[in-house]
Amino acid sequence: MIEIIREYWLLLLIGQYPHGPLGGLAGTMILALLCLVLAFPVSLMLALGRLSAHRLFRGPAMVISYVMRGTPFIMVIFWSYYIVPLIIGRPVSAFWVMVVALVLYESAYLGEVIRAGIVALPRGQSEAAQALGFSRGRTMRLIVLPQALFNAFPAIVSQFVSIIKETSLGVVIGVHEFTYAANQVNGIELVKPVAVYSILAITFFILCFSFTSAARWLEARVTAQRTEQLA
């Protein structure tokens, strides 16, 4: 394993860059980060859409939510691979196809997590805000969401970890990321698949574990702030 890392560390880290697109672990991190940043607002919109009193918002949000959760992710990737260029009217790189597929798919789950957080909040919270004179929108923004998102935080984090892991499925449409680079290494070495894919697995684990640890630390900090008396 050590010699594979020694030999191929640059390919695993950044892919064929600068002779090709940026890939490897760097590609994975960029893809994951982009999807995290995009999936959060999209899922928030889906959650609010599903809770909306207007059919116009509720309908589409529900369709997206059910279709995405009722389809294997690999189907969504293939489907996006063919349909996104058709919609846009020009060729789209595998990277952006993957961004669209992953954001859509994960937002459906994340949206349900957020919706659960909102619904689980006692009704008295929004009643109290409205009794003070806050509109429905401001009640949501100032009172409901800050609590719902905090309460749902552990589930949101685990969904974020899913996003990081599922970037690896981009390999089926040739996205230049970490798994793609590992495949290349395996193609060159041919006889050390266990070592190569162990490197892949361990690296992914470290990535996800650091992410959840950071999230746990953040959660503990906010909890401490809310339960200890502030001087």
Partner: peptide, 15 residues
């Protein structure tokens, strides 16, 4: 509602 104070049985403070 801004002109009408309302106090609930369950307080409903914002935690």
């Amino acid at each position: 509602r801004m002109r009408t104070g309302f106090v609930f049985q369950q307080f409903n403070l914002f935690p």
